[in-house]
């Protein structure tokens, strides 16, 4: 009776009483950890300007989100690090030499228009950082063109070379340079090796959905390989396509944002495949040299349709 007599305050809650331990904040932190190799490589390759853009973008994103939540009368939830995540992803798509106002404007638009306007985390129909990126890219094409912004560098822009100088010139860039991020592009998007490392670790831990990433890369590599086989003189190899532009960033980190991707394995895979194939289509036939961000935005819009592919629920009688 002694145990019952002592007054202990028990916590009441709803089942289940065990939990996998993952919270929104923890998943965001994992994501940040997965982006860290690329961030470090970006600073190595582009120096302090890259760090400046990343910091500015993250800080603006967090402040704008806090401000929005204040205005909307919501509880502050910037401590879940999702704004940090979105800010960092957006900065990865910007050139390291982007002016400060461009960075801040992008982060501001991404968080307000790409996230808070729809009600906050997880309600946005398309990827948050890509909304900011798209507005900037369409409004300030020159400032968003890394090739025009990064003049003081020895690196080459592989996709520009592919488009204007042909396959031979593009493939003259050593493969290791591409992997180590010695290419002109978005400051983090070009860090192919580091992104692959971080992304595959996250996929292995189940933080990002491997079905989407795999589908995306197959979607890029498949058509690219087909074209390459048909005419190697006109089309770059699939590896070239995978390691350039923002394919790795898109496949691992942008297309996989769970809120605007399908949630069942088969639709996820199809979604990835479509995104990847669209990237190649834009690269080959479109006006943009790197089609990844637009491809991801477009397949984001297909998610509600893909979500209709669903199995029959357990034991449901067909009606």
């Amino acid at each position: 009776m002694s145990a019952a007599a002592t007054s202990v305050l028990l916590a009441m809650s709803a089942p289940p009483y065990w939990h996998c331990g993952r919270t929104i904040r923890q998943v965001s932190l994992y994501m940040l950890a997965g982006l860290m190799p690329a961030a470090v490589m970006a600073v190595c390759n582009w120096g302090l300007p890259a760090a400046r853009v990343m910091a500015l973008c993250v800080v603006t994103a967090v402040l704008v989100e806090a401000l929005c939540q204040k205005v909307m009368g919501r509880e502050l939830s910037v401590d879940d690090f999702t704004a940090v995540n979105a800010g960092l992803l957006l900065s990865f798509l910007l050139p390291a030499a982007a002016p400060w106002w461009l960075v801040m404007l992008g982060a501001c638009i991404a968080v307000t228009l790409g996230k808070m306007a729809f009600g906050g985390l997880g309600t946005n129909p398309v990827n948050t950082p890509l909304v900011g990126w798209a507005v900037l890219f369409v409004s300030f094409p020159l400032l968003m063109d890394p090739n025009a912004m990064q003049l003081a560098t020895d690196y080459a822009d592989p996709l520009i070379r592919l488009r204007y100088f042909g396959v031979a010139a593009a493939e003259a860039i050593p493969f290791t340079d591409l992997l180590l991020g010695r290419q002109i592009g978005g400051l983090g998007a070009g860090q192919a090796g580091a992104l692959f490392l971080g992304g595959s670790l996250l996929a292995a831990f189940g933080i990002i959905r491997w079905q989407i990433a795999l589908g995306f890369f197959l979607g890029v590599a498949g058509p690219a390989a087909l074209c390459h086989m048909l005419d190697p003189a006109l089309n770059a190899s699939p590896f070239f396509h995978l390691c350039t532009g923002s394919v790795l960033l898109g496949g691992f980190f942008l297309a996989t944002e769970p809120a605007n991707a399908p949630s069942r394995p088969l639709p996820m895979f199809i979604y990835g495949l479509l995104g990847g194939a669209l990237t190649i289509a834009i690269r080959k036939y479109g006006v943009y040299v790197d089609g990844t961000p637009f491809a991801v935005l477009l397949v984001n819009l297909l998610t509600p349709l893909l979500d209709l592919i669903r199995p029959k629920p357990f034991g449901a009688r067909s009606s």
Binding site: G120, L121, G122, T123, P258, N260, S263, R264, P311, F314
Partner: peptide
Amino acid sequence: PCINCGACVLICPAR
């Protein structure tokens, strides 16, 4: 609020 992460959909044995 639900953030649409889809973890429950992946795990649900009743699909």
